[in-house]
Design a protein around this nucleic acid. Sequence first.
RNA 1: UCCUCCUUAGCUCAGUUGGUUAGAGCAUCUGACUGUUAAUCAGAGGGUCAUCCGUUCAAGUCGGAUAGGGGGAGCCA
Length: 481
Amino acid sequence: MFNKRTRIKELLASDSANYETTVMGWVRSFRNNQFIALNDGSTNNNLQVMVALGMVDDVTLKGISPGACIKAVGEIIPSLGKGQKIELKASSIEILGECDGEKYPLQIKNRPSLEYLREIAHLRFRTNTFGAVFRIRHALAYAIHKFFNDKGFVYLHTPIITASDAEGAGEMFKVTTLPLDGTAPKNEDGTINFKEDFFGRATNLTVSGQLEGELAAMAFSDIYTFGPTFRAENSNTTRHLAEFWMIEPEVAFNDLEDNMNLAEEFIKYVIRHAMDNNKEDLEFLTQRLEEEEKQKPQTERAEMGLMDKLNFVVNNDFERLTYTDAITILKESNHNKKKKFQYLIEGWGVDLQSEHERYLVEKHFKKPVILTDYPKEIKAFYMRQNDDGKTVAAMDILAPGIGEIVGGSQREERLDKLMQRMQEMHIPAEELWWYLDTRKFGACPHAGFGLGFERLVQFVTGMGNIRDVIPFPRYPKSAEF
RNA sequence: UCCUCCUUAGCUCAGUUGGUUAGAGCAUCUGACUGUUAAUCAGAGGGUCAUCCGUUCAAGUCGGAUAGGGGGAGCCA
């Protein structure tokens, strides 16, 4: 069987030696016509493969170049060199795929920028940084399913193509099979006649699975979604993508506090999972970040390293406070009094700017913050109205360095209140008849939240740009690969 | 979309008040070397200075437009 091989991670995990094995992987470097640093992606650490003089023919020797894919058979022996405990003494080397050094853009001794690597995203998996990032991304995805599964949640697949344009979460990508050359069927008023379209109506890519998630929560009690989400906003930032993955739990019988507890427990659980299972990768990224920090002036450097930050987050309670209290803190802050905010806090009711969120999280509390009970005017129609008539049972979790990582709320289960709010916000009730049905047929208090997966990966890996934590990022003017 | 900065060799970057043939390190290629660790040593090749237009006797250098990228803002997850 061709694929009979041992993963390098397993070989390096044990100190035992003097046994035959087969490895396959990609050459990171070839020193002294003798030492291959071989990587198979199971870990960032390379296996040293030793090629004794005369062991392979000249053609094969020439083929051992950075980037080439090889199969090596031989004996694992204690290494004579200092950099590693064991190595493979090759008895045969086979070039599975050669690699032209003149054209291959990745060399171990070069330090390509993240921006350059983004242009060769099809190859960047072969770098230590992206190896670590995407192994951690995988671990987090696994931990998400494990967390919810162990709690008895049902994983619900919500539709990717949707006809509802109701939530107003952002601009949507249109989905159609109608011709784009101007010959699409038209109504009398000149607008496109979507009755002729594939679905017989106008459709889009989903911006959220929440509304559908609520439907299932009204039967299974506890559900979560984890799938791709699309926003056609012209956002050019380090924390927005046009295509991203979102986790949306929805839980019947939960109120806002239960919702916060679930979100906090969830975040700590998945981070802890990565810390337990991806220690080497996190240590590598910690070090990488430390070197990056050294390039910055003293005043701009982060107070904590990546590992310390993650430890701190899993071992400390998130700070919880209401929007109203946050406004008071911001208003009373020296920062505000000395007019250091670009947008000064003057009164209750305005939405917080990122500078305010950053101040609360990074300067005032120095830990993740959960803000609750926002003014109803700045939040979505489905959030439950509080008794004060001014606020809704919303909660946002703000993380250091990233900002909003979670947005959630207790949902409005009272039909009259919901209808009234929809009317005020000009949301067509007839389009959401199925959503409103749940408020007629056995409604119950329930709550949920949405968590941007890539922002979570950013937080755990310390990567500054969200485009570097998804394999093939989609953003304005960019859909290569 | 707005503000701001950037674009010089495959990569990371120098390039002075505008002035002769645009440099370095690494990578690559050729050769040497058989216990290397970002291996080392010798040699070689490699440039439409993002693109277009302008100012000037003369533009990598000054001005404008366009494209791409970074950082910040808005929208949000």
